[in-house]
């Protein structure tokens, strides 16, 4: 029990004394994950919408692959990115291994299928609902996609949120490609793993508390943004 109490106490102390090491870790975590979420959304949201409104030959297989990719073990993604970025790998020349950029790449690969898949489901359902109306109104293909993305925006925000949640709590892949280097690539999750390994439960719990708080805050923020968008439709 005293471990937990000590953990909480240590956490609050670190947070309120604006411990520079802690804030550096928090800041890097946010930087990496927010970048990854933005990139993955730019790729995943239109991809999902496109899959929802277009009929083409291998569509069902593409969707099946997408859903399968959602279940990719992050550690394997880490390994894959590591091999690509290591000196001998195809992208070795960029010297990105053990950098925040490498961690962003790994997270983008992990969450893009998730975001695309949720976006696909959302837009598909909305398209089923709107289909007759938009066809009746003679909306062009571009106008249709625009209307679907716009009217589905809150569900799509939820998709990016889910991506954020998955990315911020991910440890396996970024440990491998980032290396958990102090002052360079150490983020909340890798730091927690390290401190737990060292038996430093108090500090680890403090970090965990920050991680949970952050996830809750981001969820609330996005919920509020969705709300002010008006109306209690759901």
């Amino acid at each position: 029990m005293s471990d937990y109490a000590g953990g909480f106490w240590a956490a609050w102390k670190l947070i309120f004394t604006l411990d520079p090491d802690l804030y550096e870790i928090i800041f890097l975590s946010l930087q990496v994950t927010v970048s990854a979420v933005i990139i993955a959304s730019i790729i995943g949201l239109p991809m999902g919408a496109w899959l929802a409104v277009n009929r083409f030959k291998f569509r069902r297989y593409v969707i099946a692959v997408l859903n399968a990719l959602m279940g990719l073990p992050p550690v394997v993604v880490g390994l894959f990115v590591y091999m690509a970025l290591s000196r001998a790998g195809p992208l070795g020349g960029f010297g990105l291994l053990f950098s925040p950029a490498a961690m962003i790449i790994a997270q983008v690969i992990i969450i893009t299928p998730l975001i695309a898949s949720i976006s696909h489901q959302t837009i598909r359902d909305l398209w089923a609902e709107y289909h007759d109306l938009l066809i009746s109104m003679n909306a062009t293909r571009a106008q249709r996609i625009k209307a679907l993305l716009w009217d589905g925006k809150r569900a799509l925000l939820t998709a990016t949120l889910a991506g954020f949640g998955r990315a911020i709590g991910e440890v396996g892949a970024i440990m491998i490609v980032g290396g958990n280097i102090e002052h360079a690539t150490r983020v909340l999750t890798t730091a927690i793993a390290l401190e737990t390994g060292k038996g430093n439960f108090a500090f680890a719990m403090g970090l965990g508390l920050v991680l949970i708080t952050m996830a809750v805050i981001v969820n609330l923020l996005i919920h509020i943004v969705g709300k002010t968008e008006r109306a209690s439709t759901w």
Partner: peptide, 18 residues
Amino acid sequence: ARDKQGFVFQSPIMMRRK
């Protein structure tokens, strides 16, 4: 011709808008 036609559906389709 489609541009000069209107259609009111058996069950109303409401866009998620004001």
